[in-house]
Write a protein that binds this DNA or RNA. Structure first.
Lengths: 140, 140
DNA sequence: TAATATCTTGCAACATTGTTGCAAATTATA
DNA sequence: TATAATTTGCAACAATGTTGCAAGATATTA
């Protein structure tokens, strides 16, 4: 695990540091998306707020994680499964936010259907944000 | 115009006040979504920041406007075209953010296609956020 | 229309979130 | 191991969002 994470960092020309390793590990272990606040509060080690901001920013730039749009004013981050390279994220992302447990899932296997845009509009990227009740919560 | 706006407010059991009228007018005149900062900066009259926050919040609760999720950490608001009643917004919204002019369009006529969710997930609401180049900008 | 009740606004004070510069510490390189 | 390059944490600040409360505006009733 440790070395796997170090590999990812090295592959992206990033120094392997304590905070980067720990934060990336949190993403690997989490089954959903994380907000800045989650990382600040839930990490065992204590990192400076600034460090977390900069780490997340770096990870986004390198294509290790991506941001998820939400209807409220929170920013969520989640691991890019694969193939996202620097400044060249996948063009399509589907996410599901559970109204009950509030966990955000990346639906990597969901294919985003084509949308009929009005004439003249050229699409580059599509985000779908679904909300409702997730698998775990509907089984209770 | 003035009276049309007053009508909307009355229909929603809201007192017709200067700030509400002016802010709602801004939405009517704007061809895209507005952020809190837009209203604070672009309005001719000067409103207290708190008033703007509370007005937007009230409008969202009444179903006059709705929020739009964005990948960065900004919150956008746009008029609900019709039928959105209190706490019962339309379940589907499609929006288009232009990378060039940065205007956000509500695509009211775009029907959101069905997404194949993994088993156990129950969808209540769907937001689609597309980005690319809008009609105006691609004609230049 | 005037008096009263209700609601809305603006101010102040505060909490949270995000940004920048810089010195000290850490990591990578030779 | 020494040096260069990068990263971190602190401080200071800027921007954004929240709450309580008194003064003002709007709606309601007679």
């Amino acid at each position: 695990m440790k070395s796997e994470i170090a590999e990812i960092l090295k592959k992206n020309q990033l120094s392997v540091t304590g905070s980067r390793t720990a934060i990336l590990e949190m993403f690997k272990k989490s089954n959903g998306a994380l907000a800045h606040a989650d990382i600040e509060k839930k990490s065992t080690e204590q990192f400076d707020r600034v460090t977390i901001y900069r780490t997340l920013q770096t990870f986004v730039e390198k294509g290790i994680i991506h941001t998820i749009p939400t209807t409220d004013n929170s920013v969520l981050y989640a691991l890019c499964i694969n193939n996202c390279t620097q400044n060249h994220h996948h063009d399509n992302h589907a996410h599901f936010i559970c109204d009950v447990c509030d966990i955000t899932f990346c639906l990597n296997h969901v294919t985003i259907p084509e949308v009929n845009l009005p004439e003249g509009f050229k699409k580059k990227r599509a985000d779908i944000v679904l909300s409702g009740v997730c698998k775990n919560c509907s089984n209770k």
